[in-house]
Design a binder for these strands. Structure first.
Lengths: 212, 212
DNA sequence: TGTACATCAGTGAACGCGCGTTCACTGATGTAC
DNA sequence: TGTACATCAGTGAACGCGCGTTCACTGATGTAC
């Protein structure tokens, strides 16, 4: 017997289309990263196996495992950014946009813990430009949305403080909840609502004198 | 030449003292876990190497790598619990106790990200009893301290909500900050103070009718 | 239109490495007599 | 008090495995003439 498509096999790309494999390898890496939770499980051989290709073929597109993992991590961030902007598009008003952003963030972090953590919770800070800027990018978006959705048009300083708080809240919740399923968590929607309320109304304490 | 103590070597334990090696192996595992940030880097051979012992010797005390890692993770939790209770002891009043607890938590998570994450931020929830109960244990402490330190003696429901919020805040901050060093964070003490203020005063919104 | 050829995409086999795991063993130390 | 012996703590060598990496190679495909 000669199976036309053995499991894991792939058709050879046509002449100018060698670059297609690069995308397939990154997709395979994202799969591994999502399945296990760890950067270390994205191996050159594992990725080649999923893509249906021999290990040496990876070297045509990446310098080695480190380069491959970098590309996968960058792609994980792009996927996160895409999920966020997709969630925002078509929301009717600022309040709806903010809520959609918060919900998309939490959903992504909970559904894809591996892809999320590799971008936002690292043991060693990343040297990748995309990851280094990830926090700043996200933050600008949050700050703008909070200002637009707030009932009290906060001054810039206060908008920034609210955005930091919201980010800490959303991240903390999204990483703690799946790690501790036995803990008696409050209802999900209630937690989310509290975050949004906290971000869009005046903070209770007056800023201490002399603090910028 | 015959070096009396070759690098990494250790003296054989006396007759009844074989169990000493077990502690040494766990200590070595904690070292590896702290150095790299990852459970996967705690290997049987690596731990044996640090302890100055041949790989098969580990099997006298552990069934294999999984068992060894379990013991190391449990020890990481015990170390966290010890750091917390040490920080609390000798604090003069409830407010000081709460602040000490928050500061100890954040310091531990930032100084020992590997040891912290293996207990509190997992991709797969742990089946270890100590880790499964960790959240509950911590939480009881937080709730009691918040009630004692609050200016308004909140009802139990509200105390619980504040404790959840505080935990989310502290965890989120302690894991985000070291991951994103390029981000312009507010001053550390200001962040901490805001968490404590938020936990010990009345929440601004009245609880929605019908929500327990 | 046919044919030789360059090149592009990818392979197979082999290597060294660190890992987990097994096995028979060694040698110091305490204990029985 | 001396001596044989059981046992305890730990070793050395070897194995298979998956990993990264190299090398010479293959075979389809487009291009030049």
């Amino acid at each position: 017997v000669k199976p036309s498509t053995p499991p894991g096999a792939r058709a050879r790309n046509r002449r100018g289309r060698g670059g297609q494999l690069r995308d397939d390898l990154i997709a395979a890496g994202l799969g591994l990263l999502g399945e296990h939770g760890d950067e270390a499980d994205v191996t050159l051989r594992g990725v080649a196996r999923i893509a249906g290709v021999a290990p040496p073929s990876v070297y045509a597109h990446f310098n080695g495992p480190a380069d491959l993992v970098s590309a996968v991590v960058t792609a994980a961030y792009q996927r996160f950014a895409l999920a966020m902007s997709t969630a925002l598009s078509g929301q009717p008003d600022p309040a709806a946009r903010l809520r959609a952003a918060v919900e998309a963030y939490v959903r992504y972090a909970i559904d894809q813990p591996g892809l999320y953590r590799v971008v936002f919770t690292r043991t060693q800070p990343s040297t990748l430009p995309a990851i280094g800027q990830a926090a700043g990018q996200l933050f600008t978006t949050l700050e703008t949305m909070i200002t637009a959705a707030s009932t009290d048009t906060p001054p810039p300083t206060e908008a920034r403080a609210r955005a930091v708080r919201l980010w800490i809240n959303v991240h903390g919740y999204a990483t703690l909840r799946p790690s501790h399923p036995n803990f008696q968590w409050p209802p999900h929607h209630h937690v989310i609502s509290q975050f949004i309320t906290d971000a869009t109304r005046n903070s209770q304490d007056q800023p201490p004198a002399g603090t910028a």
